[in-house]
Design a protein around this nucleic acid. Structure first.
Lengths: 737, 737
DNA sequence: GACGCTATTCTAGAACA
DNA sequence: TGTTCTAGAATAGCGTC
């Protein structure tokens, strides 16, 4: 702290607050002239650069460096800021906006006046004292009622009351405001939900379409495969495949689901698969037959990465394909050219092998046979098929085709055919087998299909909950507290995922990701949805509780009951409640009242609602109706309520419970609206109305409500991610509050 | 002013005050990260260097560069500063004292919550009238006391009020609490919605990707088909089927996408189709070639269902390869033994080709050469691969196959190749064509992508409607009452859907499973979304009803005008209704009252009333806290006040007397805390007392309230642009002084 | 042009130490 | 009393009716 300075007399030091002394010193200190100094007239002072001032000066005199605190003190002592003369002037960046403060008793060279500067007193409370202050209308104006510092309140009930009253009033206001805010928010949410719905619908459609497409493709492919198999098989047979047919049952070889399922000649089938599947990945290692198939597949391979989809349309990543293609192409080319064992080109791993082999085996021959032609063909193909791509590889096919044709040796073909013939009927052999990844996939698929049926029938456009879903008996669905976890149907799915995921990695990198990612998303989405569901329920319950709270007044309800917007629900609830209630509440029937209002039957309430053209996007109608139901349901049972609605809501899920509860809920589709109300009501009403002590009751209700709400709020939003973090630890000041 | 950014949806922009929007943008703007940024948790934000911040950032968004003004705004909107952890710590000179502000509804990635942040409203004043009301301490109870506007203070309405029914107070409290809880829930829901949105977005991306993949697959298939067609077509021709090839283009025969797509030689294609597709269904009618093919196909059919995988490499079980490998190995081995060329044993697939080729070219030779071997191979393979299966059927095919093999003459092959070469580029022929399902798909895809962009902009956190969406011209988006219906972007999609939908059933069940599973989830999601929607609607309605209920209270609301968020609306309604108005409205300023509570000013008030320690970490700003305070205050005092308002509210009650009393009370209520009370009183009192028809008025008021609320949401946020631009000549308040 | 709102500025309240 | 955070209050500006 700067030197005491002698500007201020000792006597004054006794009386003058430190702040004023410091201030005076600061302003007088020539060292600070750059930052704080007297005005020319000496009747005010400037702070030239409040930032520097704060940094460089304040700290020397005060315990802080906050300019705002300094200003606060100034204000506290009655200083006022003198606005800039050049107010409008835009002060570029410099903004050296200086601050000019003045006080009637703060003048240069007149430290003796400082004693006249009085710190503004806070409305003391000191109980009575405080009162005094206020009374004096002057000061009181503001302070008066509100006042109350700590001490005061308790003392005089009046104030307390006042506070109460005010508080209560405030409450009402706050309620209104809060409701308004909620409304707005809900409007927003609703809008977003609608968006989501639409988007979701589209997704569904897309998914369905994709399925179909996939299916079609699958069919085509299968046909092709069969065809090929048949063709080559025939060849082989004719030539003398007989041996093969008989020869290779090799049942246990693979866990491949398909093979296993196949009742007939497993071996053949297996091979078929190999031809195709292997061709894709194992390109290199192929049987004669396989190779034949390979050619076309070869092209396919390029796509491979891109086409993982067939089975799992969703997953595969497309990027890799191109690369793969190039690799193979190169590979193929080389071999043909050379022939020798050369795995050469080094390019792709497996492919090379194959070619190299092939080339070795008979490459020469092939080439010799149709060299020119093949090349041409190859070129052509390359052009036509994959125009974009350059045909370095163009020749690839020639040899192959050639080879294929040539290669179609009877024996091999026979084998194939044999196997094919042996094959069992179509009935999803895959499903049964588990070991093979491919097989696994299928099984999973099976499960999935099951899920599908169970959860929601794809019914293409059916967005709403499908009744069908119930069919599959998945009671838990919607309500599942653990969405992902052990949900019935889901399991298979989950299992499925990992499996499918793995294979991809073998091939292209990207491929696998998509699936997983996708699934993850799905999961997330699902979870989110579920959470929301919960929350919504919680909200509903909250509202219900609120309603209940209001419900305190039985008498009114009775009358209002008639209002019942939602008809049945209303009636049930209302009556139930009313019946009991009539007795209890002398006070006022909030409930009934409410109902009226909400129902709109209430002249007042309805009018309002209806009249407002303003109502933004939100549908009052919808809201109102739904609301009515809710409202009417007084349920003290808050807790119970949330669940029920959920059940009902969740189409598939609810089922189990549905049987019982559903009745009511089932009533309508509108899960939310109907269900909740009915279920809730009976019980709730009973409780509320019947309660012996009215007042107590109200309180109780209230508490219960609060608890319920808290519980909900706290628990409901379990989603870690989703839930907005709790309010940050608040400052000390706050904490006590 | 910085870029508008898309964090905040248009809808939100309508409702959210400019300050909040700017704030959100500022905090999100990575360019400002050095000066202002989110906390790690995203639940608060820091201003790292308020001085620099003021200089460098504030000016860009606001008309000023005063940090204090910024803070004032923050406080006005209920933000609170979070004190430094190391409070006592003396922060050397660095003093990088950062400021940390938080608000319950100000979270990273949740711009949609902004609408929940309410600006504290200034206590509207109703001028003089207030006084009267208050005076009547009795009736006023709660309301009366606090109030006070200027004049009133002295009066000690307080006590009288106490009498008010406790129950009602509780009710109010509970309501408040309930609202708070609802609010919290909404927050949660919003968060979850955000999640859903993101997930949905991802799903969309996946869907699009899937389409692309599918398309590619389709291409591949087409190529294959073409290729095969060419190959076999040749055969047929050569063998005598030639007539078929040329003769029967029969393009229209089927709608099968594949065939149609094929650009070239329709005849061949047709045939191919027959071969393939027909095999399944049309088995009976077949050309020679077809027949040949048919056998195998028939077999294949069995597989079909089971092996959809073939195409999808990825999906195809990766494991298979190993098996395949083994098979192959066996195969290969044999050859190696014979041929010199052997690139060795393991080598894999390609080897076969070479062999096959060699064999074909000289099949007989081959067989002759290695007859036994081949068989052995076959056996081996069968064993290793599919040991279990027997090969009963093996011989069936021989003749046919044989024919095929023989048919494969070089010339034909050439033809095929040529035709293939001639074929148009792969570039999704499907797309162009409309008839094909596949084609439809693509277009839809296009749309989808469009949708994607439009609907959810990836902007990760953007929940609200994306501005981008508009780009696609989807004006209706958010509010669409009929999500599915005629939404703009959807149409194409929808069209698409139906087509695709049907096919699934045709094929196998299991195959599609994965997809179905996917759909299931989707479905669930959808359901969830829908449920939410319903619930939300219900909530909305609930809220509406609540509002209405409150609104009923004429006396209280009377002042609603104060509420008048939307100004105009309010005015119209209010005035119109009140008519005489001015009088009527005056009663009591609910709004301000409310604000106080909510704002935390309420807190104070509350505190006054009761010293609730309870108010934990909750934001004062939040209703909740305020409520808590309320709740806790059991005080009999409390009880008294609330009721009255309620009565007034309740229309049916017909509190004739009440009306009057209420009026009084209402007036009195004015927030003790604030001086604001002053304002209110005068008018209100006048009105209330004077008003002839009390009831009527109340109703009216109520409506007004409702309107007001609505209005707020819709219109309130007038400042859209809030341009920083104009520099403001500052006026000086003080200049007069 | 009034009205109602937000924004900005300056001052005051309130809690705490 | 000093410091801090927040609220009040007056005014400026903007936009709608």
């Amino acid at each position: 702290m700067p030197a005491p300075s002698n500007h201020i007399s000792k006597a004054a030091r006794q009386v003058v607050p430190a702040f004023l002394q410091k201030l005076y010193e600061m302003v007088n200190d020539p060292n600070n002239a750059e930052l704080i100094r007297w005005s020319e007239a000496g009747d005010s002072f400037f702070v030239l650069d409040h930032e520097r001032f704060a940094h460089e000066v304040l700290g020397r005199w005060f315990k802080h460096r906050n300019f705002s605190s300094f200003v606060r003190q100034l204000n506290m002592y009655g200083f006022h800021k003198i606005p800039h003369l050049q107010q409008g002037v835009l002060k570029s960046d410099t903004e050296t906006e200086f601050w000019n403060f003045a006080h009637a008793n703060f003048h240069r060279g007149q430290p003796d006046l400082l004693c006249l500067i009085q710190r503004k007193k806070q409305p003391q409370q000191g109980e009575d004292g405080a009162i005094d202050l206020r009374d004096p209308s002057a000061g009181v104006g503001l302070l008066g009622a509100p006042v109350q510092t700590t001490g005061a309140p308790s003392t005089n009930p009046p104030q307390a009351n006042a506070a109460l009253s005010s508080g209560q009033i405030l409450d009402v206001n706050s309620i209104v405001n809060g409701i308004a805010a909620i409304k707005r928010h809900q409007t927003t949410i609703s809008a977003e939900l609608n968006e989501l719905k639409r988007s979701n619908q589209l997704l569904w459609q897309d998914a369905i379409a994709a399925r179909e497409r996939h299916q079609k493709q699958q069919d085509v492919i299968n046909r092709i495969v069969k065809f090929l198999a048949g063709v080559f098989g025939n060849h082989s047979t004719s030539s003398g495949a007989g041996g093969v047919a008989t020869g290779s049952p090799s049942p246990g070889a693979r866990g491949d689901g398909v093979s296993e399922n196949l009742g007939m000649a497993p071996g053949t089938r297996r091979r078929m698969r190999l031809m195709i599947e292997d061709a894709k990945r194992d390109g290199p290692k192929k049987s004669m037959v396989e190779e034949l198939t390979e050619l076309p597949l070869g092209d396919m391979d390029e796509y491979e990465s891109s086409y993982p989809t067939i089975e799992t349309p969703i997953s595969a990543a497309s990027p890799a394909p191109s690369v793969a293609l190039s690799d193979r192409i190169t590979v193929t080319e080389t071999p043909t050219q050379h022939n020798a064992s050369t795995p050469s080109v080094g390019s792709a791993s497996s492919n090379h092998d194959s070619r190299s082999t092939s080339s070795t085996s008979t490459t020469t021959t092939t080439e010799a046979t149709f060299p020119a032609q093949h090349q041409e063909q190859g070129k052509q193909m390359s052009r036509s098929v994959t125009p974009a791509r350059q045909s370095p590889t163009s020749f690839e096919f020639d040899p192959r085709i050639h080879g294929v044709l040539n290669q179609l040796t009877p024996v091999q073909i026979q084998q194939l055919l044999a196997s094919l013939a042996a094959q069992p009927p179509l009935s999803d052999p895959n499903l049964s087998t588990s070991s093979n990844p491919s097989s696994t996939i299928n099984p999973s698929a099976t499960n999935m299909s099951g899920l599908l049926t169970s959860y929601h029938q794809p019914s293409s456009f059916d967005f709403t909950i499908n009744p069908s879903s119930h069919i599959n008996n998945q009671p838990t669905f919607p309500n599942l507290s653990h969405p992902m976890g052990s949900t019935d149907g889901l399991i298979p799915f989950d299992q499925y995922v990992p499996e499918s995921a793995t294979p991809d990695q073998n091939s292209n990198i990207s491929v696998s990701n998509p699936q997983q990612a996708h699934e993850d998303r799905m999961d997330r989405q699902w979870q989110a949805a579920e959470d929301i569901d919960k929350d919504v329920n919680a909200l509903n319950s909250s509202i219900n509780s609120l309603i209940q709270t209001f419900g305190l007044d039985p008498s009114i309800l009775g009358e209002n009951a008639g209002m019942g917007n939602t008809g049945q629900d209303m009636d049930d609830d209302m009556q139930g409640t009313n019946g009991d209630g009539s007795n209890s509440a002398a006070d006022f029937d909030f409930d009934s009242f409410f109902n009226h209002l909400s129902s709109g039957s209430g002249v007042n309430g309805m009018e309002m609602a209806t009249d407002n053209p303003v109502t933004n996007g939100v549908d009052y109608n919808d809201m109102s109706t739904a609301f009515l139901d809710e409202v009417q349901t007084p349920s003290s049972d808050m807790t119970a309520s949330p669940i029920q609605p959920l059940r009902q809501v969740s189409p598939g899920l609810s089922l189990g419970a549905a049987a019982n509860d559903v009745n009511v809920s089932s009533t309508g589709l509108h899960p939310a609206t109907n269900s909740s109300s009915k279920h809730l009501n009976p019980n709730t009403n009973m409780n509320t109305t019947s309660a012996a002590g009215r007042k107590r009751k109200s309180e109780i209700d209230f508490e219960a409500l609060a608890d319920a709400m808290d519980g909900q709020s706290s628990t409901a939003p379990t989603n870690k991610a989703a839930t907005a973090a709790g309010v940050p630890a608040k400052s000390k000041r706050r904490k006590d509050k």
